[in-house]
Design a protein around this nucleic acid. Structure first.
Lengths: 342, 342
DNA sequence: GCTCGCTGCCAATACGTATTAGCTAATACG
DNA sequence: CGTATTAGCTAATACGTATTGGCAGCGAGC
């Protein structure tokens, strides 16, 4: 039955020490989990019992002060309302929680990057995971004293992990080309985020090798949102029939969702008259009707690995920023793609 | 040009004091923002300049240790992948960030509530916001020493803010009844979350007043997910034609999305043969085709108000847990509802 | 000249924990 | 029996900040 010395104040190591009849230092040694600490079994037992009886809970902040660690990490993504990034953060969260670290997520749309960075600093975060921010944050020399791990963004300076974004673009293209499509379109954001650039490059690689041209009339630069996808598709559908694409690769699932919607709204049959391929495989892909053909990028896995990479750096000291192999992606054929019709 | 005394260690108040030729206490007085501190303008100036020159950044954790505050709050929701809850958290985040507080979000699916609570405690969070957890967390006497604010869950013990859930259910029902629907169905989770219960109650209130019966064959208890909505609608469509509903109210948008999908998959016209009303108005509602008729519940606003309520409690000491009026909701008629056909 | 009151600053302490140097007692060794 | 070694513990200090009591110095008032 837990009993408090004073109900209004949390139990401290001093309280435990008093009750166990030892010094505060001994309590710290026992509860600090340091196995090489020399403490007799009997004393250890007494301390552990006293701690349990008092309901002692260590104050991580106080520990952090002396250890110069906060056991917290920050994560910054461009848009948490994009389920892909939410999944990345979730993956980070899971691994971090397991290791006793807290996660401070930041959505660039909500809080300006610099401000969020300041807040993270003030909280003495031990490390930082950046995803999808491109050169935005990288330009700032302000990350100097921080351990950083990048997701889908190669760098000389910081380690990172990446998905096979090039392969993702290739898979999408091969799928569409294999279905006999020739008049293809591409929709993607104009940002300089590396992963997105690679998806694009992979897509065009395959087209080039297949001898298929994609004139700029069928290239759409739009924000990576549902609304952006709608706009892109709407304008593609406005092309003269002879130039109108029969298939479109959207570099982000949200875009594909918007594109699909534009088609259905306009009475264009999917996949009858228009095939659509997305990329990410967010949950939304299976909610749409027809279900979205897309390339699965394991977002949680990306987050989890990034977190592990960061934590290893934090615990073992310096870790080798060796690039590592990209995480494989996988084409998931569902209902928005079909053979090209004459 | 910022210069560090020692590149490897953060700048402290001691460093600033040394450079300004004053004591650490004076630095703290000046930078602590305490306006009633008696410091000469000249000294103040010197300190401020030294701080700027050294690039001083206060260590919130150290401050928290002495002030017994962490300037952090926790938020717990049942499922962050439900955009509604994500929006609530976003609302919290925005207000908290503004006030210099960090937010530690927790998804009950990812991290067991008790574990997350322990983690929040260990980090000395100043307060906690709970949404959609029903009696789950409330049963635990473990929240004793915490300032808590509840969302959509009335309580004698803690203050909270709520949306007009009863009204939401009523609006949905009135809309469907107004369209002439008589054979109605309801789909909702079996959880004892108060807000959901109220949506349900409001819906049935209107039906009763209109003299419309809803037999249990048309009542579906399913998990509040897209999958749950699909299952519910699939089984409703399997009813004999004479009993099959012509409209369905789904207490959560995700359910409605699933229900819509089940209809489209089964070739049932929406809203021709089946009208569907959701509740929440998450972003997804406008992505679907046809767009979802739903009741808008201002999730961000809920989160923002909850955060303000909590922060006021934290800053001004004890605040009155007066209930306050529920936040109004609004019917948004879109494409999934239409008049009942003979 | 003395007290009084005020201004402006600082020394000291506390917050809760980790860590190290060192002390005591017991044991091992010659 | 004397000394070196070790096990087991504690006192002291540090982490970076906030806060308080009090000390100089100074001008005003008598």
């Amino acid at each position: 039955m837990p009993t408090r010395r004073d109900a209004s104040r949390p139990v401290t190591t001093h309280d435990v020490a008093r009750r166990a009849g030892v010094s505060q230092a001994t309590v710290s040694l026992v509860l600090g989990g340091n196995p090489r600490a020399r403490v007799s079994a009997q004393t250890r037992e007494r301390v552990v019992r006293a701690a349990r009886e008092l309901g002692y809970r260590p104050n991580i902040l106080a520990r952090g002060l002396v250890q110069r660690k906060s056991y917290a990490i920050g994560v910054m993504v461009p848009d948490l309302s994009n389920p892909f990034f939410l999944d990345v953060v979730t993956g980070v969260q899971r691994v971090a929680a397991e290791a006793g670290y807290a996660v401070l997520p930041g959505d660039v749309r909500e809080v300006p990057p610099q401000r969020h960075l300041d807040a993270l600093r003030a909280r003495q975060v031990d490390g930082l995971i950046l995803d999808g921010l491109g050169a935005l944050a990288l330009q700032e020399g302000a990350l100097d004293d921080l351990k950083v791990v990048l997701v889908d963004e190669p760098s000389e300076r910081w380690p990172g992990i990446a998905s096979d974004a090039l392969g993702a673009g290739r898979l999408a293209a091969e799928h569409l080309v294999g279905l006999g499509h020739v008049r293809l379109a591409f929709a993607g954001p104009a940002s300089d985020v590396y992963g997105l650039r690679m998806r694009e490059r992979g897509f065009f690689q395959v087209l080039r090798d297949a001898g298929i041209a994609l004139p700029s009339e069928r290239l759409r630069r739009v924000p990576p949102t549902v609304r952006g996808g709608m706009a892109a598709m709407k304008s593609l559908l406005a092309l003269p029939p002879a130039e109108r694409p029969t298939a479109c690769f959207c570099a982000v699932d949200l875009l594909a969702a918007g594109a699909l919607k534009a088609c259905l709204t306009a009475g264009v049959a999917v996949p009858g008259e228009m095939s659509i391929v997305g990329c990410d495989d967010v949950e939304l892909a299976r909610v749409l009707t027809p279900e979205l053909t897309t390339v699965r990028v394991p977002a949680r896995e990306l987050g989890a690995r990034a977190a592990r990479l960061l934590l290893r750096q934090l615990e073992d000291g310096a870790a080798a920023p060796r690039p590592g192999k990209p995480i494989p992606v996988k084409l998931v054929v569902r209902g928005t793609t079909g053979p090209a019709r004459e």
